[in-house]
Nucleic acid binder design. Structure first.
Length: 422
DNA sequence: TCTGGGGTCCTAGGACCC
DNA sequence: TCTGGGGTCCTAGGACCC
């Protein structure tokens, strides 16, 4: 029995989503910005051709964008998330086993497709997804997930492949490894690429030729797994059910620098509520939380401040009535006046299933009361949106809220947005 | 003025225990 | 206080991913 994986990756996903409901933009350069309109996180092919770099800060390229008539969007995760679900639904027609790896990538298990023409199957996916969803994709197929990633990259790059590459013939695999720079391998980042270059390791092929002990010494056992996968030995399984998260972090940069504690409290209270909501959604409780507060990393020396504080909870909880006050207490403890703050956030840790929580001996058991209330809040918010129920401390001023001045309508998830757009 | 947010895993080193 | 191997737990830091 041989393993076989397909990696299906949406082309320029966020840019493709923006274009979907705005056909005037076909053939035009588009970029999508990070939260707070900070930097570029997605580009259409036309924008790439103009030389706009991934991660470029908006303020540095603003003139260039205007000069070249690039269409600029704030990120609209509500739209992208919904489109992503539609793509995954389509993919599930092509394999019973699908792993949703990220918002724009899924792995498909094709391992037991013995009597299927894999090339034709992959091509069918490539044709079907844009018809069903409007989103173009590329498909890479190989014996391991790491090789499927590599095949997918080449499928996009190569004219001949035209969006689909099945990499199973050993001769082709070797050629593909030789054509792939080390830094483009899944699992090899900038640091490792730099280090490996010192040893003359420049391509994926070079890496497969190193001894296991060399790889383990320089890249830990994680790197060794990558190398084995490049050699065709599967080490990374398909994960159809995402494992429950061991940390949950909710944070945002402020739309403008904040000086007053009360403004920052509004932000953190909101993050704490969202964080507790995420915790409940995966059916977990947290036993500790960490609050952090920081200025811009780019502030002048002496004006940079970063602090965090961890609080152990009396007993594990997912109640915002527990988590929010504790978080605010931690924030007040680390706040120093005189700084221009840029970001705050909360991380919950020590996560356990909600069903396994041991009650503290000395605390009144508020869990029953809280969990009923939390259920009601979750239902309300799911139906009417996050701001339907808020706490006083969350405020209404919203001085912290992020800038997203170029937000597109949520065409697929909000009826009033769709009507307005028509 | 302006540079994202949310995760995972591994390792090393220290504290502490028998 | 030292002798000595071995184990666990925790944290900080560093690497990676999208």
């Amino acid at each position: 029995m041989t393993s076989l994986f397909a990696l299906v990756d949406c082309n320029n996903f966020y840019a493709s989503c923006e274009r979907l409901f705005n056909p005037d933009l076909i053939g035009k350069p588009i970029v999508v910005l990070s939260n707070n309109d900070g930097c570029v996180i997605a580009r259409s092919n036309e924008a790439k051709a103009l030389g706009i770099k991934m991660g470029a800060p908006l303020f540095e390229i603003k003139d260039l964008l205007a000069r070249d008539g690039v269409h600029v969007f704030s990120s609209n995760y509500e739209l992208y998330g919904d489109m992503s679900r539609r793509v995954v639904l389509t993919l599930s027609e092509y394999s019973p086993n699908v792993e949703v790896y990220s918002i724009d990538e899924s792995f498909l298990d094709l391992g037991n497709f013995l009597h299927v023409d894999i090339q034709a199957h992959a091509r069918a996916i490539w044709e079907r997804v844009p018809i069903a969803t409007g989103i173009p994709v590329a498909v890479g197929v190989a014996a391991t997930k790491t090789l499927a990633k590599l095949a997918n990259r080449l499928a996009k790059k190569s004219r001949k492949a035209n969006g689909v590459l099945v990499l199973t013939d050993p001769v082709h695999v070797e050629a593909a490894l030789k054509a792939t720079e080390i830094g483009d391998v899944w699992g090899v980042g900038r640091q490792y690429a730099r280090k490996l270059a010192l040893y003359g390791v420049r391509t994926a092929y070079d890496l497969t030729r190193q001894t296991d002990s060399f790889v383990k010494r320089h890249m830990t056992i994680v790197g060794l797994r990558t190398v084995k996968e490049l050699r065709g030995e599967p080490c990374i399984d398909l994960e159809m059910v995402p494992p429950s998260k061991q940390n949950i972090c909710t944070s945002r940069s402020f739309g403008q620098p904040l000086i007053d504690l009360s403004d920052i409290e509004e932000a953190l209270a909101t993050h704490a509520v969202r964080c507790a909501t995420k915790l409940r959604k995966q059916g977990s409780c947290a036993s500790a939380l960490t609050v952090f507060l920081e200025t811009s990393r780019f502030a002048a020396p002496g004006q940079v401040y970063f602090s965090s504080r961890t609080v152990q909870l009396e007993s594990p909880s997912a109640s915002e009535l527990v988590i929010m006050p504790q978080a605010l207490g931690a924030l007040r403890a680390i706040f120093r006046s005189g700084f221009r703050y840029k970001r705050t956030g909360i991380i919950v840790t020590g996560i356990c299933p909600a069903g396994q929580v041991q009650q503290s001996l000395f605390e009144p058991d508020n869990r029953k009361r809280d969990s009923g209330l939390m259920d009601s809040l979750d239902t309300l918010r799911k139906r009417f949106g996050h701001s339907v129920v808020k706490y006083g401390v969350q405020g209404t001023a919203g001085k912290w809220e992020m800038q997203s001045g170029k937000l597109s309508p949520c065409y697929t998830t909000r009826l009033d947005d769709l009507i307005k757009a028509r």
